[in-house]
Amino acid sequence: MGKLSPRHAVVDNNICVACGSCADICPMGAMEIVSGVFARPVEERCVGCGRCARECPASAIRVEVRS
């Protein structure tokens, strides 16, 4: 496994409407929709670019520094 990006997307599952706009826009294919309930970033692929956060209509995604 390669080195993880210093930043990554974090999804608030309570706000996410699972519309899939984040998965659609993600250039890395790093967003998956879990059972139609919420979006989840694939940590190994997410580079923390923030495109998903800008696209999310529910403002359920933010980009954070990995802990």
Binding site: V17, A18, C19, S21, E55, C56, P57, A58
Partner: peptide
Amino acid sequence: KPRSWCVFCPMG
């Protein structure tokens, strides 16, 4: 935002 309808779409 472009897909704001999806937030309150009744079918969604």
